[in-house]
Design a protein around this nucleic acid. Sequence first.
RNA 1: GCCGGGGUGGUGAAACUGGUAGACACAAGGGACUUAAAAUCCCUCGGUCGCAAGAUCAUGACGGUUCGAUUCCGUCCCCCGGCACCA
Length: 828
Amino acid sequence: MISNVIDKKWQKFWEDRELFKAEDFSGKPKYYVLMMFPYPSGSRLHMGHCKNYIIGDVVSRYKKMQGFNVLHPMGWDAFGLPAENAAIKNNIHPEEWTYKNIRVMKEQLKNIGICYDWSREVATCSPDYYKWTQWLFLKFYEKGLAYKKKKEANWCPKCLTVMANEEVIDGACWRCKTEVTKKELDQWFYKITAYTERLLEDIKKLKGWPEKVKTMQENWIGKSYGVEVDFKIVGPAADKIPVYTTRVDTIFGVTYLVIAPEHPLAQKIVKGTKYEVPLKEFTAKLKKQSEISRTSDLTEKEGMFLGAYAVNPFNGEQVPIYAVNYVIMEYGTGAVMAVPAHDQRDFDFAKKYELPVKVVIQKEGSRQEGKDLAEAYVAGGVQVNSGEFNGKKNTEAMVLMADYAEKNGFGKKTIKYKLRDWLISRQRYWGAPIPVIYCDRCGIVPVPEKDLPVKLPFIADFKPTGGVSPLASVKEFVETDCPKCGGAGRRETDTMNTFICSSWYFLRYCDPKNNNEAFDPKKTGYWMPVDQYVGGIEHAILHLLYSRFFTKFLFDLKLVKFDEPFVNLFTQGMVLKDGQVMSKSKGNTVEAEPLIEKYGADTVRGFVLFAAPPEKELEWSDKGIEGISRFLARVERFIAAALPLFKDTRPVVPEKLPKELKTFYVNLNKTVKKVKEDVEKDFHFNTAIAALMEFVNFLYVFAPPEEQKSSVEYRSLLKLAVEDVVLLLAPFTPHICEELWAGLGYKESVFLHELPEADPAFIIEDEKEVPVQVNGKLRGRIMLSGGTSREEALALARALPAVTASMAGKKEVKVIYIQDKLINWVVL
RNA sequence: GCCGGGGUGGUGAAACUGGUAGACACAAGGGACUUAAAAUCCCUCGGUCGCAAGAUCAUGACGGUUCGAUUCCGUCCCCCGGCACCA
């Protein structure tokens, strides 16, 4: 029965009945379960993909059986570079390529029996969809949250486009792993930094998110508290160099100042001096270095004296100014006070360039000199060499010194973040055009709403050139009228980062066909927020941060009533093969289809779920798939054999069951409870399935006393047990369970039936096996029934030969008696 | 370096708030059924000693707390993930 015939039969049944269609505004409680939608890459679905969708499918079916109105949609993150690259390679248009892939992937998803509401399918590359992506751009623009700026940006030489900071992983392109370089271009940005504090603060609201993801977002936002202090440059110009520090308590230990070589003040200081040319050379040299080597702490620290000094406002000391490779322009003020005694980087640099090391914080009770230090002392302690702050704890001094700087007008308390604005322009073809027109007279003019969508022209040559979007060469696209003055205008030719498209798709699912607005707030009000989001940890920052940003923006526009999109987040572990993530490019994929063909969809599903808890990474191996296959066959055989007994049964009355059958009933109840707990508490499908296996094993072994064999009580109980097994198993292995359910005489889908409830009155067994220990060592076990008193139990336990033996001649010190759990004698 | 997560049989893994370590499976070995095979069913299956009953050791290492520790505490080793010249 594991053939594809069963699979196809029920897949068609579900589709014909529209069984998994979500109903807007149904009276039932809603449940929105969402998978991160895939990029339709065209590769056959491999086990890595499948695990994700199977998890979501189990949740969705389970919730349906709990009586929820479930929304479980699917769509396609369909814009993006690979479409172009593959299209170029295979000489086929990206659009054709993408839609072809969508068809293939959809078919495969159906083949493993994933139950989506396909009527809500969206593809981000469809004009019906990206019209609203563009509309959202206009909203951002209206609110001043979309702006254009010339900036040196991360450039991937392979993808031939710029990218956001979030897309650079270890100095390389997150998609193709090519080392990222810099390129100065005029770019569009979304002002995510306007939401920094809320994005950080609201992490607290994300109770259902893994700590790990929250920490990653916190780190990415990178809030720090510090003080900005002005150091005056010695000389007639009277320029000030502002520095940012989180350790103002160490400021008396400043022995030099370091500044990014490209800092305008550095340039200014050396102008017309003998240092001008060397600085130019130094800057040029650093420019050639990649971002990785420049910002790696393994890189040797390098710098040059600029021939100038600055005054430490706290003590009036003059310190030399150095341009160094380890200070970057983008963070803080681009200049840093160097305290070699208490900062490892400064310490390394000072050693190399023989600069003084001045201790200002000492560990309590110790007396250290700068020359004694083998490394910087970064911990806390007591202030020394710090003027009026001497003797204070450094934590106290930090506060006092910040106040002191503010009072004297040379500093202010400052909060800094690492998060930067989101660069959204991409110089590629296959994306949503940025809906903007440039006019010589009116400047930047947004495309009026009524003219949306700005359709991506169908062009033959979409090869990237490098720095310019392929759209720039499409005359009919570029040349247009200015919507404001009617004069000649030029369209923006960059397209949007695909992460923009995926930052709101979960809203569109609530109202996918709406032609008048991005979504009806009443519908998003009903469905949102997403109750359970499932996806890979690789989006911990990227997609998840962007989606939160979008949601908060829409909240401010009063278009939605919630300011966090995802209540619960589950990050599933990846499927590895040979220690690496499965991917087509690595050539280490295990395709799902041959396995489905061989074992049937349910076995493949069951195996993936049984192999390990879903959050854990799974090193792929076929070993063990037989186990699930056998188990399902055992279930089928058992039911087939028991079926004749199910005639003329009646509802089970547990109170009236004879002793043996009561044990059976308790066992069933325990199984129901265990399975439901495992699924609901933490998605531990592996132990849920194990519990069902255990129960089925019990069913095979259990034999009632001869006189009960054909009793109506036994037959009714057996039927109840079998039905409960089918119901509990249904979310995991739906096809077989539908077949079995029909075999049991039901005309409707098993998913329209509610899950069994464990009867709390019949969870505890009458008899319990209790371990007996002497000095913590196991000496035997006794069977105790519910009513046994402590005295009786102890007497029984003491009578065990092994217990008597090990206590002989010893003195009893204490006895530990824990009801139903353990008996332990402490003897000397 | 810092912050997470982890280290349990030949393998994937279980073990609730400290209470019988290894559930459930896979693989392996033995047996039954069969002309044979497949399928199915039964038995064994962490190490050592023992014919056995049993004893004893065992959850990365070493200590500690406890009647009792995979679980709590300390020190250390290893693996995975994230962050990192961020001032």
